[in-house]
């Protein structure tokens, strides 16, 4: 099955409703969440990463980024969307 995977990274101070807000936006955009992970990092930041498949998305990459940026500003968190290829290149030889 074809997949186009992006990582969505959410960084900030932990609070209620982060997973709900991001997942809800992805659901409305017809984007499937493949994996999800979260932790408080040694530098004190809450970090959540979601691996999402955008192959069936009803929004463009530009709209996805812009939409998540809005979600992020409501949550007072930084949200970054990046195609998985960049992690393959940077972290795997």
């Amino acid at each position: 099955m074809n997949k186009e995977l992006v990582f969505i990274t959410v960084i900030g101070v932990d609070r209620k409703g982060i997973v709900a807000a991001v997942s809800n936006f992805l659901y409305e955009s017809d984007i499937n969440i493949v994996d999800i992970n979260q932790r408080i990092m040694p530098d004190g930041y809450f970090v959540m990463t979601m691996l999402a498949d955008i192959i069936d998305a009803n929004v463009s990459m530009e709209e996805l980024c812009a939409g998540l940026e809005k979600v992020g500003s409501r949550l007072k968190m930084k949200i970054q969307v990046q195609h998985e290829n960049i992690f393959k290149m940077m972290h795997r030889i």
């Binding site: 960084i11 932790r39 970054q80 990046q82 940077m90």
Partner: peptide
């Protein structure tokens, strides 16, 4: 997940901070 959270955080941090 094929990448650890630390790896993804490292890349994101490089860009954002």
């Amino acid at each position: 997940m094929t990448f650890t959270l630390e790896e993804i955080y490292e890349t994101t941090n490089m860009i954002l901070r």
